[in-house]
C-alpha cells in the first residue's frame, strides 16, 4: 500500500507542475497581396514569421529570390492567364507585376510563389463581383447634423454568401486642429471648453485614425432598396476629422473577411475568454498571410464644422 501511496503522491506533485512549456518559434513564410477589381495587379509581399522577442522588421524578414506569379483560373480550374512578378529591387520581399493587366471581377486567382528553399506557397481568392457607385460622387455635410452622409451602391456579389462590406475613412487633411470633439478628447484628453495649442500635440497619436475602417458588415445590415441597391449611412463616430475625407466602400472576399474575423478574436473582441488566442484560419498553403481581393468604390466628402 505504501509504495502505491508514494507513487500517487509523486504523481500529484509532479503533475502539479503542469505548466505546459510555451512552444518555440518556427519560421514560416508569409504572403500578403490584395487584388482590387479593375485595378492593376497588386504587389505581392513575401516575408517570414518572427519570434516575439524583438522588434518586427518586415523588410529585414523579406524573402528574396522567390519566383512569384498569379494565375487566373477558368471555371473548370484550368489556368486562363498568368501574371508574372519580379522583385521590386528596392524593398526586400516585395514583388511587382511585370504587366499592367487589370483584375477582373468574379473570377478565381491563384497566387504561386516558389521560395528559395525549394518550398512552394500558394493561395487562392475568389474576387467579388463589380461594385457600382450610384450616388453621390461628392458631398458636403455638417458634422452631427440630421443630414447624415449616405452613399448608394449597386450590390456586389459573392458565391455562396451575401456580400460583406468594409467601410474606410481616410482624412485628407489630418491635422490635430481638425479633430472632431470625440477624438480630441479620446486622443489628447482635451474637452470642448478647453483652450489648446495644436502645435503642442503629439501627431504620432493620429496614426491609428489616418485610415480607419469598420469591421466586416453584412449586406443585410444595410438598407436594401427596391432596385437591390444598398444605402450606406456614414455613422458619426467614424468621423475623426473635419474637412475633406475619402470614403471607401469595399466588398471583400473570404480571405480578407477571415483575417478580420480571426484577428478580432486575437485582439480580444470575441466571446472567447481573455488570454485565449486562436490562430488565424489557414487560407495559405505552405505559409501564412492573406491573398485577398475586393471590389471598391471611393467618394470624397467634406465634413463641415457645426
Amino acid at each position: 500500500m505504501r509504495p502505491i501511496l508514494a507513487l500517487l503522491v509523486l504523481a500529484l506533485l509532479t503533475s502539479a507542475c503542469d505548466t505546459t512549456r510555451p512552444s518555440d518559434h518556427v519560421s514560416e513564410p508569409v504572403v500578403e497581396a490584395y487584388l482590387i477589381v479593375g485595378e492593376a495587379f497588386a504587389p505581392v509581399r513575401l516575408t517570414r514569421t518572427d519570434d516575439l522577442d524583438g522588434v518586427y522588421d518586415a523588410e529585414a524578414l523579406g524573402i528574396v529570390g522567390a519566383s512569384v506569379r498569379v494565375v487566373e483560373l477558368a471555371i473548370d480550374g484550368s489556368p486562363a492567364r498568368t501574371i508574372d512578378y519580379r522583385a521590386s529591387g528596392v524593398t526586400r520581399g516585395l514583388y511587382l507585376p511585370v504587366s499592367d493587366e487589370r483584375v477582373r471581377a468574379a473570377v478565381r486567382y491563384r497566387l504561386e510563389a516558389d521560395l528559395p528553399d525549394g518550398s512552394r506557397l500558394s493561395a487562392e481568392t475568389v474576387v467579388p463581383g463589380e461594385l457600382d457607385l450610384i450616388e453621390p460622387e461628392r458631398f458636403e455635410t455638417v458634422y452631427q447634423s440630421t443630414d447624415q452622409f449616405e452613399i448608394r451602391v449597386g450590390p456586389s456579389t459573392y458565391p455562396g454568401r451575401q456580400e460583406i462590406y468594409v467601410l474606410s475613412l481616410q482624412p485628407l487633411d489630418p491635422d490635430p486642429a481638425n479633430l472632431t470633439p470625440f477624438y480630441l478628447d479620446a486622443l489628447y484628453g482635451i474637452g470642448p471648453d478647453e483652450t489648446w495649442d495644436p502645435a503642442s500635440l503629439d501627431v504620432t497619436k493620429l496614426e491609428d485614425i489616418l485610415l480607419a475602417s469598420s469591421p466586416p458588415i453584412n449586406a443585410a445590415s444595410f438598407e436594401r432598396l427596391p432596385d437591390q441597391s444598398i444605402r450606406i449611412r456614414l455613422p458619426w463616430f467614424s468621423v475623426a476629422f473635419f474637412g475633406p475625407v475619402r470614403v471607401q466602400v469595399n466588398a471583400i472576399d473570404d480571405n480578407i473577411n477571415d483575417f478580420f474575423r480571426y484577428q478580432n478574436a486575437q485582439l480580444g473582441g470575441s466571446t472567447l475568454s481573455p488570454g485565449e488566442l486562436p490562430n488565424i484560419v489557414d487560407t495559405v498553403d505552405g505559409g501564412r498571410g492573406v491573398f485577398g481581393s475586393m471590389a471598391r468604390q471611393t467618394v470624397e466628402l467634406t465634413i463641415l464644422r457645426p
Partner: peptide, 17 residues
C-alpha cells in the same frame, strides 16, 4: 492560456494605416 510563439504583420493591409 495562449502564449504566442510567432508573429507576422500585414504591412500593406489596405484598411488601416
Amino acid at each position: 492560456y495562449t502564449e504566442p510563439a510567432s508573429q507576422y504583420r500585414l504591412v500593406d493591409f489596405p484598411f488601416t494605416a
